[in-house]
Design a protein around this nucleic acid. Structure first.
Length: 420
RNA sequence: GGAGGGGUGGCAGAGCGGUCGAAUGCGGCGGUCUUGAAAACCGCUGAGGCUUUCGGGUCUCCCUGGGUUCGAAUCCCAGCCCCUCCGCCA
């Protein structure tokens, strides 16, 4: 059921959902527009039916022609009014978020999320320094020079520090493949339709970089690309669930959070991420959600980092999710849990926007599959947590076991190796 | 950037401005035949909206948006996308 149908059917329920999510949408105007549009359409269709009847067969009499000219004018007049209303209705309807799964805990913001698991911090034999100190003294992280190139909220990696990130990306993709994910390498720029389909437009608008000349946008996440990969397609039912994993950089303007988290790698304009997206049968999505969440947790565990898992409450759910979980990593230097994955069951919401469908059997009606997404994982915060957890008394950095094969067997980065 | 070609139903591929939502073939579904299957033959087979006394009725959609016309898949204009060749470049 589309958001507009939900509003029409039960506006109060949608109003409660908006309240619970902390979002706003012009419901009254939407209802008013919907009534007007339906009314005008009925009027228009009656006239069209008359015209169709008259123009069937052959050339009509001059008398009929004259009358049909009038009918045509009336249709045109209705169109003039209807067109603008339809455009406004469609635009406004895009502001209605998804439904909420009844199991989701109620709450205002992330402080009300339901903690499911919380590890103890790793025992370290030193007073942990924040990642920018560790990284910059090793010469593997360079924030000042990145600022020179691109402004604040960017970072550059050097030497084995750059290789470390590359290793993380490759390893994170590789551990997904045995679980039935197909690797995708999508374009990093995208179009408006793609962002609307995934639900990032219109409401995420001010967080997106764009090129006005060509109307192309930098992707805020691979999710947009993976969701639209099958836009306007019917997926053969026997292929479900379809699982994709993709590495891409992610670009975010972070206008909303100006002044917050400006230090270090926690909140940056460009970061790398390995993303998972699943298309599945509607009845499978709870299992798939748990499965994706496990994939995120698995990655953090195998890197030997302390994990916190929480179910997001209604107020922290976001625009598109029915239900979702966050996976955080403890970063002892900044003394914070850093979110490295967010898992969402978007139900049929994105599939409806993107016109992705499937058919249970030949002859059966088209249905919208459920689409889920999860980071697996987001690089810069993971990198920060990793640097802070693996820093040593002598100033060196130990490379976690699983990544060593990806770094030519290197097991640590020593002071002085890459400083300049 | 320059020159040309093209966008029609799941696919292929027709379509004089007037019962064209669209021929035909393939595919799919159902049936006949068969111990079973194949082949052959017969029938059915796009999506969405509104409405319904659930029989149906009606509208829209032939890339998109405008225009011409009593009437547009068919004519005109603009745009988008794809393909081929040339140039430039990684």
């Amino acid at each position: 059921m589309t958001p507009l149908q939900r509003v029409r059917e039960n506006p109060e329920k949608v109003r409660e959902m908006l309240e619970a999510r902390g979002f706003d949408a012009p419901l009254d105007r939407i209802l008013e527009l919907d009534r007007k549009v339906r009314d005008l359409r009925a009027k228009k269709e009656r006239l069209q039916a008359e015209r169709n009847k008259a123009s069937r067969g052959g050339p009509p009499s001059d008398e009929v022609k004259r009358r049909m000219r009038e009918v045509g004018d009336q249709i045109k007049a209705i169109d003039a009014e209807l067109g603008a209303l339809e455009i406004e209705l469609n635009e406004k309807a895009l502001w209605i978020p998804n439904e909420i799964d009844p199991r989701v805990p109620r709450g205002k913001d992330e402080n009300d999320n339901k903690i499911i698991r919380k590890d103890e911090p790793k025992k370290l034999d030193l007073t942990p320094k924040p990642h920018w100190d560790v990284g910059e003294s090793l010469g593997i992280l360079d924030i000042p020079r990145a600022a020179k190139l691109s402004g604040s909220r960017f970072f550059a990696l050097r030497g084995a520090g750059a290789a470390l990130e590359r290793a993380l990306i490759a390893w994170l993709i590789d551990i997904k493949i045995p679980h039935g994910f197909v690797e995708v390498s999508p374009p990093f720029v995208t179009r408006k339709e793609t962002l609307v389909a995934s639900g990032h437009l219109p409401h995420f608008d001010e967080n997106l970089y764009r090129d006005e000349d060509d109307d192309v946008w930098l992707i805020p996440t691979a999710e947009t690309q993976l969701v639209s990969l099958h836009r306007d397609e019917v997926i053969p039912v026997e292929r479900l669930p379809v699982r994709y994993v993709a590495y891409t950089p992610c670009f975010r303007r972070e206008k909303m959070s100006a002044g917050r988290d400006v230090r270090g790698m926690k909140r940056v304009h460009q970061f790398d991420k390995v993303e998972m997206v699943v298309f599945c049968l509607p009845e499978d999505s709870p299992d798939q959600l748990a499965f994706l969440n496990e994939r995120a947790i698995e990655a953090v565990e195998r890197l030997g980092l302390p994990v916190r898992v929480a179910e997001r409450c209604t107020g922290d759910l976001g625009f598109t999710a029915l239900r979702g979980f966050d996976v955080d990593v403890w970063a002892p230097g900044v003394e914070e849990w850093l979110e490295v994955s967010s898992t969402s069951d978007c139900g049929s919401f994105q599939a409806e926007r993107a016109h992705v469908s499937f058919r249970r059997a030949a002859g059966k009606a088209l249905e919208a599959p459920h689409i889920l997404n999860a980071s697996g994982l987001g690089m810069s915060r993971l990198y920060a947590a990793l640097v802070e957890n693996y820093q040593q008394r002598d100033g060196s950095l130990v490379i976690p076991e699983p990544l060593r094969p990806y770094m030519g067997g290197r097991d640590k980065i020593a002071p002085g190796e890459f400083t300049l």
